[in-house]
Amino acid sequence: MILSPFQTFITIIMLMLGTMCTRFLPFIFFRADRATPQYVQRLSRVLPYAVIGLLVVYCLKGVSFTSSPFGLPEFISILIIAVLHVWKKNTLLSIFAGTASYMLLIQFIF
């Protein structure tokens, strides 16, 4: 699909407005002179864990536990991530090590 210059301009403007709204609206709705609502505080505590859980489920949705390699690369990588995170408490290290271990496992072992 090829867009005309006008359609391209309109698309860029709409993307810019959408980005600006997501950046500016929190500062408009949640001013510094007022207390943050309780539901927003609860979401800020709960949502990161929910997102991580959702990502784990999404990543494991295509794993077949009934055929070879029976989900072993995924299980080993998740175990490495959990051990590293409990031991070092470094999210970036856990993510990098888990990704690297998974890629090495599926490329060279399984």
Rank of each mutant, 00 (worst) to 15 (best):
T36K: 13
R34F: 14
V46N: 08
P37S: 03
F30M: 06
Y39E: 12
I28N: 07
E74V: 10
V51L: 14
A35L: 11
T36W: 07
V40T: 03
T11C: 13
M20G: 13
S44F: 10
R45K: 14
C21W: 12
I13N: 05
V46Q: 08
Y58R: 09
R23N: 08
V46S: 10
A32M: 07
I80H: 01
F75I: 14
V57N: 04
F70A: 00
D33F: 05
T66N: 11
F70D: 00
G71I: 01
I28M: 09
T36L: 15
E74D: 08
Y39P: 04
L55T: 06
S44N: 11
I10E: 11
G18P: 01
Y58S: 15
I12E: 10
V46E: 11
F9E: 10
Q41W: 04
R45T: 11
L15Y: 04
Q41A: 11
A50Q: 12
I52V: 14
F24A: 12
G71E: 03
S68G: 06
V40P: 03
I76D: 04
I52M: 11
F27L: 09
S64D: 15
P73Y: 00
I28T: 08
I76P: 05
I10V: 15
T19M: 14
I52T: 09
F29V: 07
T66G: 05
L60R: 03
C59L: 13
G62A: 03
A32C: 06
L55W: 05
Y49A: 15
C21A: 15
L60Y: 06
L60A: 13
G62S: 02
F27Q: 11
D33N: 07
M16H: 05
D33G: 03
P37C: 01
R42K: 15
T36G: 05
R42G: 07
L79I: 03
P48Y: 01
E74N: 09
I78V: 09
I81S: 14
T19Q: 10
F27Y: 13
I13D: 06
T36N: 06
L60N: 10
Y49M: 11
M14D: 08
T19D: 08
T36Q: 12
L55P: 03
L60K: 03
M14H: 06
P37V: 05
S44E: 10
Y49H: 12
I78R: 01
L79H: 00
C59S: 14
G53M: 01
G53D: 01
M14G: 04
C21K: 10
P37A: 04
F24M: 14
F30G: 02
T22S: 13
F27A: 13
A32N: 12
Q41T: 08
L15T: 02
M16D: 07
G71C: 02
G53C: 02
I10R: 15
L72A: 09
G62E: 03
V63N: 00
Y39T: 08
L43F: 13
P26R: 00
L54R: 02
V56P: 04
G71S: 02
R23M: 13
L17M: 11
F75Y: 07
I80G: 05
F75T: 09
Y49S: 15
Y49R: 08
